[in-house]
Structures are given as structure tokens and as C-alpha cells.
Simulated scan of single mutants.
Amino acid sequence: MGNITASVFQFDVIRGNISENRSIVMEALEQCPSGLVVLPEMWSCGFDYKNLKAHALVSEEILKDLSDMARRRSLVIVGSLPVFERGNIYNVAHVMDADGRLAGIYRKTHLFTAGGEGKGFAAGSSADVFETMAGPVGVMICYDLRFPELARTLMDKGARILAVPAQWPAARRTHWQTLARARAIENQLFVVAANRCGEDGELSYPGCSLIVSPTDQVLVDMGEGPGLATAELDFSLMDDYRKAIPCLKERRPEVYTP
């Protein structure tokens, strides 16, 4: 598998304003080089709990736009939107492949109950890896980063990239940076993590979107402002590093069982 270009886009998500957020994201996607691009969590509307169902009903229309954009710009697009299904609202990451096909969806598994997510969303219950033109992609959403078991499961299922849409607050900025790097190091894969920036009520968001290599090279750290950043992902580096330090092969699961 050859190298690919990966991009992260961060911006100040305006709570409840789908029209403005959609316009900002579509304009950014027009500027993306071909390859993978990761958008923030709940980028269409933010955590507008009062109107969440109404926002969820617009997501299907947004996905049509993403499909057209992916096909036209040869992009693999990952970002999360609210989705209403079976009487519940889920925080769903859609993996749109570069041919406009929906490669798969991931429903956020770990809800940040300290922030009230359990009151607005139902939790997903599966971890899947999606075959895309950028390679096998596993997805984690924001709070999921705190659960190494999920990242390890995705690696075991063949993920070579972990895509992470997020709305991670500035108060725990160092946790965001450390956990993203840890997931890359311990699983010897690439982490492409897009976090929002700006303000929403009393919460401040730092951006600091990251692209991290399997060897803990921070290829991108965007800092606080809105924008788009890219890096080349060299998969031969991943393969060579896994051979040089074969910790994934030297695990002993029989010892870890409670």
C-alpha cells in the first residue's frame, strides 16, 4: 500500500446553526488534497440537545452532499453527525469513501455521561474497521480515546488508521494530546484526530487537531485557530516499525485475563 495524504479540519462549530456549519465544512473540503480528511465530532450542529432530533433528520441530506464531494474530490471523509434510528438518537461517524460510497458507520460507544451525553444519545455497541481507498480505517469518537480496549480491538481487526472526530474541551487539552499519541504508540498505527476550536457557552475548545505516526512523530499539531492541515502517511514506516519492535506479536493475552 502506498502513502496517502491525511488532513484534519478544525473550526468553531456554531451550536444549532446547520446552515453555517455546513457551508464552512463544504468550503474546507473543496480545499482538501485527495486522501483522508477527518472533521470534528457533531460538526453540523454541535451539542444542541434541545433540537437534536430535528438536526438528526437533516443528516441524511448532509450525507448526500458529502457523497458528492467525496466522489468529486477523491476524498475519504470521516466526521460525526446526529442520526435518529429505532426511536433513538446516536452520535454517528460516517466513513464516506472516495467513490461516494458509504463505507460504513460507527455509533459512539462510550458516552460522556459527565457532560450529559447519556441524556441525549443512545450508545453504540460495535467496533468495526472499514475498507476505504485510504486503507482500513477504524473510528473512535472523542471520549472513546480514554478506552484503550476499543483502539486495540480496531487494530486487531486490521485498522491501519484510527480516525477520531472530537469536541474535546480546553480544560483537558493535555489529556487529548497524550491519549491520541498513546493510542498511536501502543497500536503502532496512525492516529488522525480532528478536534473543534472556539467557544460554546462556558466551554472553550483548544483545537489542537493531531496526526500522529506509529513511532510517535507528531506530524500535525494545529494549535488553537481554525484551519486545515495535512500530512503524508508512510505505511512502509508502520510496517518496518512493527518488525523492528514486534510488541503486537509478543502480547500474552492469557496473562491479561481477569
Rank of each mutant, 00 (worst) to 15 (best):
G225M: 06
P258M: 08
S23V: 01
S80M: 00
N17L: 00
I141F: 02
A134R: 04
A244K: 12
S213V: 06
A122N: 02
E232I: 15
Q167T: 11
Y49S: 09
V38L: 04
V164Y: 01
R251H: 01
D99H: 08
R72E: 12
T113Y: 11
I62M: 13
A163Q: 08
F84G: 07
K50V: 04
D97A: 05
F112M: 08
M42K: 03
G135M: 05
V8F: 09
E149G: 15
E85H: 15
T153R: 14
Q177S: 10
L36P: 01
G198R: 12
G223N: 11
L29T: 02
T5I: 12
I211M: 12
V83W: 06
H175N: 11
V129F: 03
A170W: 04
D234H: 06
H110M: 15
V38Q: 05
R101Q: 02
V8E: 09
L233C: 09
T174W: 09
T109L: 14
M69A: 15
A244T: 02
S34W: 04
P82L: 10
C208F: 13
G100D: 01
G223D: 11
A194Y: 04
A163L: 08
F235I: 03
P136T: 13
Q31Y: 02
Y205C: 05
S74A: 11
N187Q: 07
D239M: 00
E232H: 01
V191P: 10
P226T: 06
I185K: 10
M96F: 00
E20L: 06
A182L: 13
H94K: 07
S44A: 12
I105P: 02
N187G: 10
I185R: 08
E186S: 09
L150R: 14
R181L: 12
L63F: 07
R251I: 04
Q10I: 00
G16E: 06
G227S: 07
M69W: 07
K53F: 06
A180Q: 03
E131L: 13
T178L: 09
P214N: 09
L210S: 05
C32D: 02
I161T: 15
Y143H: 14
K119E: 12
E224N: 07
G158H: 08
D12G: 10
G116P: 02
S74V: 09
N195P: 09
L75W: 04
M222V: 12
P33M: 01
P214E: 12
M1Q: 11
R15L: 09
A28S: 15
Y241S: 11
T215C: 12
V25W: 03
G100I: 01
F47H: 13
S67P: 02
P206A: 04
L52E: 04
Q217G: 00
N195I: 01
F47D: 05
L57Y: 13
V92P: 00
A6N: 06
S7V: 08
L189V: 03
